[in-house]
Design a protein around this nucleic acid. Structure first.
Lengths: 149, 149
DNA sequence: CAGTATTTTTACGAATTTATTAAAAAAATA
DNA sequence: TATTTTTTTAATAAATTCGTAAAAATACTG
């Protein structure tokens, strides 16, 4: 799908405020409400973006965040990733080039829950060679606003 | 702030669909629209969550994703993080315990842009001792739905 | 425990937004 | 240039949001 100037203007507005109304965006970028709606619906269908909420983990009792690098046995990476995917605590999983085959980001209630995730949940998955746990001490940024306004 | 059952029901609905209307949520969880609205506004004020859009980087031309671990000179970590924060390409920055002092996640147009980020942008920041670049080969998950429905 | 204050929920109407759709305009195609 | 296809607009009906006052529930106090 080809995004044009109007699409990017819409995305720029939504990037600033995910709750902007069609009408509001329409007024700002000088097109009709119907145009904004049509384009948003098209982009949603094409999975250009999604409307979501971003929860503050701390505020819902998840006080420990970690990025965990995994070394996996050749051939088992995909299977391992798919098992991890179902875990409630896991926010991100990717396969990577570099030292770690898989990198995952997870949110946990406390250190105990993190430890149990590593020593119980991960431990029982076959094919994990090594685990490198990095615990977050401070967060500086967790937003993405690529599009210029 | 103390979140109760009703708050969590609201969050659960919004987690499924960030565009659910107050009325829609109200119908499902059997309270008035005003209650849903009041609680959402309160949670927004308390920064429990935000309404955002999640863009699919590929669809806006960002085909290279990377997680970069940095080793930083003692005392300069905070300053480095704050400089990185302003970068358009950077989605996530955290300070961590473990091998890397800072871990960042970034989205780039192509390999060239990633390389220029590392060799030009990072290179000119004072106090970075080492850089460990992991390029994403496949993404398995990038969503968070912690709350049970 | 009664009484008062505070917070939360509900309910209602006005303002606004969304959704549907037909016609106009623009763009693409032959 | 004519024709088809896509996109935008405009108009109106349906639904949602918003502001607010009253009712209900909860918390607080003597």
């Amino acid at each position: 799908m080809e995004l044009d100037k109007t699409d990017f203007k819409i995305l720029a507005k939504l990037q600033d405020n995910g709750k902007s109304s069609y009408s509001e965006i329409a007024r700002v970028i000088n097109v009709s409400e119907g145009t904004v709606r049509a384009r948003i619906n098209k982009m949603l269908k094409e999975e250009v973006f999604e409307f979501i909420i971003h929860m503050n983990p701390n505020k819902i009792g998840l006080h420990v965040q970690a990025i965990i690098g995994l070394e996996t046995k050749l051939g088992l990476q995909d299977h391992i990733a798919c098992q991890l995917k179902t875990h409630q605590s896991v926010r991100f999983i990717g396969a990577f080039s570099g030292k770690h085959d898989l990198i995952i980001q997870g949110y946990f209630r406390d250190n105990e829950e993190l430890v149990s995730f590593v020593n119980e949940q991960l431990a029982k998955i076959e094919g994990i060679i090594s685990v490198d746990v990095n615990v977050e001490l401070k967060q500086y940024k967790d937003t993405f606003s690529y599009i210029d306004t």
